[in-house]
Design a protein around this nucleic acid. Structure first.
Lengths: 233, 233
DNA sequence: GATGATAATATGTCTATACATATTATTTCT
DNA sequence: AGAAATAATATGTATAGACATATTATCATC
């Protein structure tokens, strides 16, 4: 039997998904064990294992040693969002990206920010205010703090050329992050920066990036009206 | 050599992540091939393969046959968001969930909705307006269309008890979805439903759920002020 | 030099087998 | 009966070896 003819873990995966979807295997139910399925599909147990692991990763199966694999009742579907770099996002729309650093200062943050950065009182950090533009129009206004205790090189960097975001991606990549999304009415200051009317609803994101439990940067972004975040499950 | 002593694909995975993080393997660079790594770690190639596949899944490596594995320069970070059921979300905050169906009608949708549901002109669909509440206070207002051509049972269902969302999860589980998130100023109608002032910034989500390329439901949700969507990368 | 055939190579997948480990079921002992 | 020890079981992981497949590099040909 040529190996790709009948089996292949992906075909088994689709078959499993199909049986779950059509409710041949009902929510809450235990499915046959790997050995039985391997026999049915005429393949090795490892192949079934690979397929079932993939389905479990997708959040549709609960797999337990000795207990077996069970179809989950209310699958907590997990959505993938990729967090693009603003420049790329804007360029992907066919618009020209540019940015302007409106403020840059090494200073002692307020108590709240100290906590968010996880640094001691009396320590300084780099504060940056940046306006991101698409075709010259305000796209997003950014307020960022960079932990210069952890990343001292940041203090001597000029962010006029390369944006702080891209600089960080290049100089402190592969980090963890917490994100939050919300809506708010533009304050007078935000309205002025984004050249919109005060009170207009704007989409906000905040991001806290860490590496080895050290906070690297904390950013707030306010997007110009019309912004939409898309994702698929 | 006992198998769990030295190796294990997870240990190899951490080591690989560590080498990427510390830039021993720099962005853009080609890493040693599986056979070489297997030798270095003293394990089978399959074990290295498993580890590298996991790192690639996490979005840090680009793996190509013959070409080898390369550290990605700008890792497109992928965030996991789980889309909870509103009831669970509210209950998780320790608040009491309740909902009220304000409108329910089988009718011919407007052209725009027809398109979104992917159904023919002249066809009817079920329109539902629901208010979700936490501790009796408005939490989110929902406008939903259900494709009764694909899910005829929905037409005869009473959504006063079980919310449409939960009914759908139970009756048409394991679907695909597209989500969007944005901010807007509350219209007069929205403000009235959510008992807030007109113009207040509210967080919106829309969701289109499909199964086998058939649209099952299309939902818009407006959240009461203060709502925040969280996720981690 | 361009083109097309051919070889070389790294990853992708499968098999069979073995042992590990978590968890449940059963038996034994008190 | 209840607790503790033991067996049974399904998944988890590792191994060596084989073949598949995509892609690159090389070489022959015109």
């Amino acid at each position: 039997m040529r190996q790709t003819e009948v089996s292949s873990w992906q075909e088994i995966q689709s078959e499993v998904l199909e049986r779950i979807r059509t409710r041949k295997w009902k929510p809450g139910e235990l499915i046959p064990n790997e050995t039985e399925l391997a026999e049915e599909f005429g393949c090795a147990r490892a192949t079934v294992n690979r397929a079932l692991r993939a389905v479990a990763d997708a959040g549709l199966l609960d797999r337990r040693r000795k207990a077996g694999s069970r179809v989950l009742t209310l699958p907590e579907r997990k959505a993938f969002v990729s967090i693009p770099i603003l420049r790329k996002e804007i360029e992907a729309k066919g618009q020209a990206y540019s940015h302007e650093v409106l403020h840059s200062a090494l200073k002692q943050p307020a108590r709240e920010t100290l906590e968010r950065l996880g640094i001691a009182k009396g320590t300084k950090a780099l504060e940056l205010h940046t306006l991101h533009m698409a075709d010259g129009f305000p796209y997003a206004y950014e307020e960022r703090w960079i932990n210069t205790n952890y990343l001292p090189q940041a203090a001597n960097t000029d962010f006029d050329g390369l944006s702080a975001n891209e600089w960080l991606v290049a100089n402190a990549p592969y980090t963890e992050a917490e994100l939050s999304f919300s809506a708010s009415n533009a304050t007078a200051r935000q309205a002025e920066k984004l050249k919109i009317e005060k009170g207009t609803a704007i989409f906000n994101t905040t991001r806290r990036t860490t590496q080895d439990h050290h906070v690297i940067t904390f950013v707030k972004l306010w997007f110009a009206p019309g912004y939409e975040l898309l994702m698929t499950v």
